[in-house]
Simulated scan of single mutants.
Amino acid sequence: MVKKILLPASILYTLTLIIASLITLKAVPSLGSSFDDKIYHIVAYTGLAFLWTSTYKPFKTRYIPFVVFFLSAFLGFILELLQYLVNPNRTYDTYDLIANGLGAMFGTLIAVQINVYKLK
């Protein structure tokens, strides 16, 4: 049952992330930290990489986690550039790129570890 909804959930999450990255967001809740934006980026890309890594069994093809990690980080890079080019209210931020990459790494590693645990 869960396997059947992973692909649509991954696609929907990706589209939502793309839209949220390109529109002007108002009234984003504060976490009370000076790094709220970076935390949001890490969480968003952790979810992205986790969903896509879980969608494709990484042990059927061993390179899937690497592909998911790089594509998730690349999407973060493209969206940062598009924010700068498309929306005058959004800006390019190198630290956002780092946060996106960290999130992609965390999500991929968590999904791989869950799959390793399932195999034991």
Rank of each mutant, 00 (worst) to 15 (best):
L7V: 04
T14F: 08
M105C: 15
S21I: 06
I18M: 13
V28L: 15
Y56G: 07
L109K: 12
F59V: 04
H41F: 06
F77G: 03
Y95S: 15
G107Q: 08
T91F: 14
A9F: 14
L81W: 01
F69N: 03
L97M: 09
L31G: 08
I110T: 07
Y40H: 07
I5K: 04
P65G: 08
S21F: 01
M1W: 06
Y40V: 13
E80M: 01
I42E: 14
G103C: 06
L81S: 01
T91M: 13
I5E: 01
L82D: 07
P65C: 05
L102M: 06
A104K: 06
Y40N: 05
N89T: 04
K3N: 12
V68C: 11
G76W: 02
S10K: 09
N87G: 03
L85D: 03
F69D: 02
S21Q: 00
L51F: 13
I23R: 01
V43S: 14
V67I: 15
T61L: 13
L22M: 08
N100D: 11
L79P: 02
L25Q: 10
K120G: 13
V68Y: 06
L79C: 05
T61C: 09
I42Y: 12
N87M: 04
L102P: 13
L25A: 04
A73P: 15
I39F: 08
S33C: 14
Y13K: 10
I78N: 00
I78C: 06
A9V: 11
L97Q: 03
I64N: 04
P29G: 11
N87T: 08
G107R: 07
A20P: 00
Y117W: 10
I11Y: 10
Q113T: 12
Y92W: 07
I23M: 03
F50A: 07
D96H: 03
S72V: 10
N100Y: 00
L17E: 00
G103Q: 03
A99Q: 04
I18V: 15
I19D: 00
D36R: 07
